[in-house]
Design a protein around this nucleic acid. Structure first.
Length: 773
DNA sequence: CTCAAGTCTCCGAAC
DNA sequence: GAGACTTGAG
């Protein structure tokens, strides 16, 4: 975020004179195919770029070339999938044409560019320009809430499953009406109901989820031709990186935008399509030539990155996939080292072997830490590696995983701020209204949200009218009033105070900081620090962009992934998922956890399509490497806190043996027989069953709370007199008889014998007993 | 209502 | 094995 600033002021110097020469000399450094891609004038262009074939180079030079040919930077739109890729692209263009021009290009992720446009045009779709962006956690929380309200069991259908069904419906541009109409199974019918509520809820909250950022652009363009025309006019050249990973809405949006000028340049490699799971449609690249009959196709097949052996190994792997565009990668690089393969006893040994590999490369080959990357399939694998590196004193950074912005306390601060900017954002309000505890508990919130729903108000509006909400305890009412007053005070200040001052005062008054300060303990100290960091971050942000306020800040952080955070980290080893590694390169790459069930993941093994995607992922991993690849697998590994004994990944066998050198404990003993027995002794690992009770309660109607809803606790007000001998009802213990009453005032207790759980002593102040019959 | 302790779920990748 | 969620006592 910061890196972009600072420079422009000092180097607005010689945009054109020097860049002309620069581009000319750069053209000289390109091979004939790359040059073709760069010099192609108008009309659709498909660049099929194999791994390491200088794809980014072709793309950035192309943009630079357009600019020197007189295309205005702000007429160029360059879409990428990650912020990292966008930043890198901009940086490289800046080197060619200067910061000034580079900065005026519309370059960014699909989500961030579209969010920018939507913010400008928000009113046309019935949002305000300060709409909130819900991340996947927010969405999940909302879905849970809706499921609870609708009385849909979360045991049967997990909220995650519902969310992903909704998300893929949205990604295939199926609105809830249509989804519900076509719903067959119970799951789909229920999901349809949730889907409807979910969409309406987002709309009411003036919020969009990630999928909306794509879909709403299409809705906008289709419903407002004049708006579309405006952007078509603006974006005379549209370039898309990683085109193989576009999903349906992205594809459609690009088509719409590029239709007029037809200056659409897409770059991709079908062999590196690894985002099918989030709706990427590999057909988009496979059919580009059919979509645009006059498309020029350029193939970049010369690899500049890897050794011959690495390339051969990658090829051995990818040929096992059926559908591919024809492409033959070749290189004039050295043969290089073999592919190293190591069998380890467990993941700790694996981690320490990674440390050895890194040290060895540093020592023997003069490489730096930053030349090494460790790649894994799932984020959970990072921890063991982290421990090993830390205790060996090897500096590292972890990309992705639990990012700063996903920490609880950080999300709390952001939710506070979102509420300020967009008071309709009920999701954020519910998140913070009792954080830290203000005596506004679950029951109160239930009543409050119910009221809001019935009156068709946002929850914040309901708070502002708390005197009309029925059944509230006096205390809760006061607490809500106080909270609403507190938030309103700062909403009034929104335009008066600089963003970071406002944020500081606001968060201070929220007592979030003092809560962490007083709670003590190391964890709370961390949290305190993180909250402070967010506030300083806002200060930095507004310093860099004086025109921007809190709304802009929130927009920005909603769409950053952590990969950007430590861009300037010095000489450190990089740890990340294979997905995260796409587009990067390293002299040394270690891929850990090459085991069945982990890579490929067990659920992919049965399904050919998914298996092929895993294979492409492996292809991506291998082709990140310039000089050496180390593949390792373990004989045993902890998963879900349990030991498992996985087989080596089938992918290992796909590399022809001549390319491979085996290392490690596998050498010393005849492991064939030994490990075979080892495994045979433990059949069926990794298979987990759902808890048993499912069958026990099958005949009980879905709504277990029936008895509860017949006896709304509100009606008692907790003030009825309880006497020995009375029959009473309790919300969780059910029916019982009062044996004795003791104490007085707040301390008054009743001893009750319940049918279900026997004798209990209850404080009358808290236990809301119903007098029965 | 709140907090602590116990239980369950999770670990598929990211904008 | 950690974090999210549930349960139970004050």
């Amino acid at each position: 975020m910061k890196r972009v600033r600072l420079k422009p002021a000092e180097s607005s110097d010689s945009v054109n004179t020097s860049s002309d020469a620069a581009v000319r000399s750069l053209l000289a450094g390109l091979n004939s195919e790359q040059r073709k891609a760069v010099e192609h004038q108008n009309g659709p262009l498909l660049i099929l770029a194999g791994a390491g074939s200088g794809k980014t180079r072709a793309l950035t030079f192309r943009i630079a070339h357009l600019i020197t040919r007189g295309v205005k930077p702000w007429n160029i739109l360059a879409l990428t999938f990650t912020n990292k890729a966008a930043a890198e692209m901009r940086e490289r263009i800046a080197r060619l044409v200067g910061d000034d021009a580079a900065f005026k290009i519309w370059a960014g992720t699909f989500h961030s560019i579209f969010a920018r446009i939507l913010r400008r045009e928000a009113d046309k779709l019935g949002y305000t320009s300060s709409f909130s962006i819900h991340d996947s956690e927010d969405s999940l929380n909302l879905i849970k809430l809706i499921m609870t309200n609708l009385g849909i069991s979360q045991q049967e259908h997990t909220p995650q499953a519902v969310r992903s069904a909704i998300s893929s419906a949205k990604n295939s541009m199926t609105p809830w009406e249509e989804y519900s109409r076509n719903a067959d199974s119970i799951f789909e019918k229920q999901t349809g109901l949730v889907y409807k509520e979910y969409e309406q809820n987002l709309k009411r909250s003036n919020a969009m989820d990630f999928d909306d950022l794509l879909i709403n652009i299409i809705r906008l363009f289709e419903a407002f031709p004049a708006v579309l025309d405006n952007y078509r006019e603006r974006f005379q050249h549209v370039l898309v990186d990683e085109y193989q990973d576009t999903n349906k809405p992205q594809y459609r949006a690009v088509q719409l935008l590029a239709w007029k000028h037809r200056n659409l340049c897409v770059v991709g490699d079908d062999a590196q399509s690894i985002y099918r799971w989030r709706g990427a449609d590999i057909e988009n690249i496979l059919t580009f030539e059919a979509d645009f009959k006059d498309a020029t196709v350029v193939r970049l097949e010369r690899n500049y990155r890897s050794t011959k052996r690495i390339l051969a190994a990658a090829n051995d792997v990818i040929v096992n996939n059926r559908r591919q565009l024809k492409k033959e990668l070749w290189t004039e690089n050295d043969d290089g080292d073999p592919i190293y393969q190591r069998r380890c006893r467990d993941e700790r040994e694996e981690a320490s072997s990674v440390v050895d590999v890194i040290r060895e490369n540093k020592r023997e080959h003069g490489l730096k830490y930053s030349d090494c990357a460790v790649l894994y399939r799932i984020n959970a694998q990072s921890q063991v590696l982290e421990d090993a590196l830390r205790s060996a004193g090897v500096p590292y950074r972890i990309v992705g995983g639990i990012s700063f912005y996903r920490r609880k306390e950080v999300k709390d601060v952001l939710a506070y701020l979102k509420l300020l900017v967009n008071p309709s954002d009920s999701e954020s309000l519910l998140r913070v209204i009792n954080e830290p505890a203000r005596g506004i508990g679950k029951t109160t919130l239930g009543r409050l949200t119910r009221f809001a729903q019935e009156q068709n108000l946002s929850v914040f509006e309901a708070c502002n009218n708390v005197e009309h909400v029925p059944h509230l305890q006096k205390r809760a009412r006061t607490a809500i009033q106080e909270f609403a007053r507190f938030v309103r005070t700062y909403i009034d200040q929104l335009n008066n105070l600089p963003a970071h001052e406002l944020a500081r005062a606001y968060i201070d008054e929220s007592k979030l900081l003092s809560y962490y300060a007083e709670a003590g303990g190391e964890e709370n100290l961390d949290r305190w620090n993180n909250v402070q960091r967010v506030i300083s971050h806002i200060a930095e942000f507004t310093e860099a962009r004086p025109d921007a306020g809190l709304a802009e800040y929130l927009q920005e952080v909603a769409l950053v992934d952590d990969t950007e955070q430590m861009v300037d980290a010095d000489d450190v080893v990089t740890l990340m998922t294979m997905h995260g590694a796409k587009g990067l390169e390293f002299p040394v790459v270690c891929v850990v956890g090459m085991e069945k069930g982990l890579f490929p993941l067990s659920r992919a093994e049965q399904q050919p399509d998914e298996l092929e995607e895993e294979r492409r992922l492996f292809y991506v991993a291998i082709t990140r490497a310039e000089q050496r690849v180390y593949l390792s697998h373990c004989e045993r590994r902890y998963r879900f806190g349990e030991l498992s004994y996985p087989m080596p990944s089938g992918f290992l066998d796909e590399i022809r043996p001549e390319l491979v050198e085996k290392l490690g404990i596998g050498r010393q003993r005849d492991l064939g027989a030994l490990s075979g027995n080892f495994r045979a002794a433990r059949p069926g690992d990794g298979v987990r069953r759902k808890p048993k009770e499912e069958t026990l309660f099958n005949d009980i109607p879905a709504n277990e709370d029936e008895s509860y809803s017949q006896l709304p606790p509100e009606e008692s007000g907790g003030r009825a007199k309880i006497r020995p001998g009375m029959r009473v009802g309790h919300s969780s213990f059910g029916e019982g008889q009062v044996l004795r009453v003791a104490g007085s005032g707040d301390g008054q207790r009743a001893i009750v014998r319940f049918k279900s759980v026997g004798e209990k002593t209850l404080l009358l102040k808290y236990a809301k007993l119903q007098v029965l019959g």
